[in-house]
């Protein structure tokens, strides 16, 4: 049952991710991206990672994508105002995309995809166990990453305040 759900949701993820790229209107792209993140949430639930699922739901779908949508609505991009891209950029994009595909295929070939994925510790994704792991063996990396986020936040505030200092 869960394998069938996985294949169904995985197909949806791929379709929605492709729609993100192929949608002409940037707002539609963002909406498809939200749907893609929703399918990712379902994937996390299938992996028994409930906390990650809910956090993905709140942070990515509920906060970050709202900001994306917010900025795009403010910019009010239309077909007329969108600058046409030069052929050089298109060629560069194709080359970069091709390199990415080669890398992905290479890494997938290296990994043994034939053996089924078995979770070593199926209960790890529950809130209690995850918290104990994060604040136990992984305390230092966890705190360091929070410092990194704090630095990014201070930087963002500083950048947005620059005008006031100059005036």
């Amino acid at each position: 049952m869960s394998t069938q759900v996985f294949y169904f949701v995985a197909t949806l993820s791929i379709i929605f991710s492709l729609m993100v790229i192929f949608a002409k209107n940037p707002i539609h792209s963002v909406l498809y991206l939200i749907l893609t993140f929703f399918t990712f949430t379902v994937h996390y639930v299938l992996l028994n990672a409930q906390f990650l699922a809910v956090v993905n739901f709140i942070v990515y779908m509920g906060a970050i994508m709202v900001l994306f949508l917010f900025v795009l609505m403010l910019l009010n991009l239309n077909k007329e105002t969108e600058p046409s891209k030069s052929p050089l950029i298109k060629i560069v994009g194709v080359i970069a995309g091709g390199c990415l595909i080669v890398t992905l295929i290479g890494s997938l070939k290296a990994a043994s995809i034939s053996s089924p994925l078995i979770l070593k510790n199926p209960g790890l994704g529950l809130v209690e166990n995850l918290g104990k792991e994060l604040f136990g063996p992984f305390l230092l990396p966890f705190e360091l990453s929070s410092l990194l986020l704090l630095a990014a936040m201070v930087g963002a505030v500083l950048l947005s305040k620059r005008d006031e200092v100059e005036a």
């Binding site: 809910v54 709140i58 509920g62 709202v66 917010f70």
Partner: peptide
Amino acid sequence: NVGVLYIFGVVSLGVYGVM
């Protein structure tokens, strides 16, 4: 077992209807 966070997630989705 993440009921409070679920409520929180639903609340954060609510704004999409308006947007």
